[in-house]
Computed example of a mutant assay.
Amino acid sequence: MQTIENINNTIKENMAVMVYFSAPSCNVCHALKPKLLDALNANFPDFKVESVDISQSEEIAPHFNVFAIPTILIYLDGKEFFRKSRNMSVDEVIREIRRPYEIMTS
């Protein structure tokens, strides 16, 4: 089971982290997640992904100011860099991450 402490440790210990908030009842969440994971793996091999099921870990989403699903939070070098909720495309997410990620890994 996920905890706020586990997620914060992942963010601290890894250069690039995506935290993915979803719930079992969210069809969009289930359709989007594999596409996002495939795109991250193909473009950014150093990304670490944490998945949060808000139905199991109810205190985590409010801690990160997440009030809609799906929501992704992108952390680069321990700082929140990008946040997107509900309507998002995989291409949009990849586009937002590419330049800062390449600068950090070059």
Rank of each mutant, 00 (worst) to 15 (best):
S22T: 13
A23Y: 14
A23C: 14
P24V: 12
S25R: 14
C26E: 00
C26P: 01
C26I: 02
N27G: 13
N27R: 14
V28P: 00
V28F: 06
C29S: 14
C29F: 06
H30C: 07
A31C: 13
L32D: 13
L32Y: 15
L32W: 14
K33N: 13
K33Q: 12
K33C: 08
P34F: 13
K35R: 15
L36W: 10
L36S: 10
L36H: 12
L37W: 04
L37V: 11
L37D: 10
D38F: 08
D38I: 04
A39E: 11
A39I: 03
A39C: 08
L40G: 10
L40S: 07
L40P: 10
N41S: 15
A42P: 12
A42C: 12
A42T: 12
N43W: 02
N43T: 12
F44V: 06
F44C: 06
F44A: 00
P45S: 11
P45K: 08
D46W: 02
K48D: 09
K48G: 06
K48H: 13
K48N: 11
V49I: 13
V49T: 11
V49M: 08
E50A: 12
E50T: 07
E50N: 06
E50H: 05
S51G: 10
S51W: 06
S51V: 08
V52G: 02
D53P: 07
D53V: 07
I54R: 01
I54D: 00
I54C: 06
S55P: 01
Q56C: 02
S57N: 12
E58C: 10
E59W: 05
E59C: 06
I60H: 00
I60K: 03
A61F: 02
P62G: 04
P62K: 02
P62Q: 05
H63P: 01
H63Y: 03
H63D: 01
F64L: 03
F64T: 04
N65G: 07
N65L: 10
V66Q: 02
V66A: 01
A68Q: 11
A68F: 07
I69Y: 02
I69H: 01
I69L: 10
I69P: 05
P70D: 04
P70E: 01
T71C: 03
T71V: 02
I72K: 07
I72N: 04
L73C: 01
I74K: 09
Y75P: 10
Y75V: 09
L76M: 13
L76Y: 12
L76W: 08
D77R: 15
D77A: 15
D77K: 15
G78F: 06
G78P: 07
K79L: 07
K79W: 03
E80H: 08
E80G: 10
F81N: 02
F82D: 03
F82R: 06
R83H: 04
R83P: 03
K84S: 03
K84D: 00
S85M: 06
S85V: 01
N87I: 00
N87E: 07
M88S: 05
M88Y: 05
M88K: 05
V90P: 05
V90Q: 09
D91G: 15
D91E: 15
E92F: 11
E92W: 00
V93K: 03
V93R: 04
I94P: 03
I94V: 15
R95E: 14
R95K: 15
E96I: 10
E96W: 08
I97R: 01
I97G: 00
I97E: 04
R99T: 09
P100R: 00
P100K: 00
P100G: 02
P100V: 01
Y101G: 05
Y101W: 13
E102P: 11
E102K: 15
E102R: 15
